[in-house]
Nucleic acid binder design. Structure first.
Lengths: 177, 177
DNA sequence: AGCGGATAGTTGAAACTTCAAGTAACACCG
DNA sequence: CGGTGTTACTTGAAGTTTCAACTATCCGCT
């Protein structure tokens, strides 16, 4: 394979980006499985529910936020229901829809798992990047997500603070949408 | 979840990085499945073999380069063998080992699939990034891979070209083996 | 040479994801 | 109203990945 359609700089970058995309989910999964008996996907389900009003979300919305297909989510939620992490009930406003709600047990699970997960994130990403690089990475991922996720479904509630150097503790807000 | 252990800039960056890591493999998979009847994993198997001497690699080496477990690779190669994309034969030097070799059909498949794949990569990544950002991204992914893949198994053969002008980092060596 | 342990890979079963229906409720239109 | 089409799931089967043995070979040691 001589990919003459990419410059060697692009090729080197591409290979590294793919490697990160391939390795990172595994690293997150391992730590969570080992320390919290959760997959990264299950963690995301819990995390997304925890941020929603009433800790409740419709299956379709939850699937969008976790980048899952509906069948995948449906099966996963059934298994998590067996473990009493979430519960399902029909949506009062729309008889077709199902709501998933975080249980108290699920919340506790998330609270217990979060510190280790965040530590892992810090270890793999933020400890090795300068503040400038963190800002650059945010710009770069923003640009890529413009094509990959035009509606920003996966990043919806996470607005960026003001770009300049020292962002300490500004209130972050929901995007309109 | 109020993750106070990350700054809001870090949190925003993190959410975007996870979104890219989650969405990118899916985007690659869709295009390859649609246009070439290959998964991204199968494409990587073919690509790694195509770059190896004799278009041949031992199963363990191939697994490392594609970030697969040995059972996963073993099953996948068996299925690809049924499609005549690769072939297996015992390693002459080591009776325990198995070699996987790209067949002519497999090579043709890869050649046919590559242009569309590269176009997809360009579309999702390089078209939306400036040359400066491409260089930044290479530095950033390099730094992250130092922890995620210390031996550089996944990026082994892809050396970066000489950095343009101002390189701050002494570029830790990622040895091929 | 022969033993014990490590290495390389395969295999079948369990777990998970994807795929192809299937069900029920809503929405519009005549 | 009743029909037609769409939306929001759920379900069971098929395909894939992971997990736990299991086989065979190699290496170091005596």
């Amino acid at each position: 394979m001589s990919m003459q359609w990419l410059t060697s700089e692009q090729l080197a970058t591409w290979v590294r980006l793919v490697a990160v995309a391939e390795l990172l989910p595994g690293a997150l999964d391992s730590q969570l499985r080992r320390d919290a008996e959760l997959t990264h996907f299950e963690y995301m389900v819990l995390a997304m529910l925890s941020e929603a009003p009433e800790r409740t979300l419709r299956m379709t919305a939850l699937a969008a936020r976790t980048n899952a297909t509906l069948p995948r989510l449906s099966h996963a939620v059934r298994r998590m229901e067996d473990r009493d992490l979430v519960e399902r009930f029909p949506c009062p406003q729309d008889g077709r829809a199902t709501n998933a709600r975080l249980t108290e047990t699920g919340w506790q699970k998330l609270v217990a798992a979060a510190p280790g997960h965040v530590a892992n994130v810090r270890h793999h990403v933020f400890e090795v990047l300068s503040p400038e690089q963190v800002a650059q990475l945010a710009d770069i991922t923003d640009a890529i997500l413009d094509r990959l996720d035009p509606d920003g479904v996966m990043t919806a509630p996470y607005q960026r603070p003001t770009p300049p150097a020292d962002a300490a503790e500004p209130a972050r807000q929901r995007t309109a949408q």
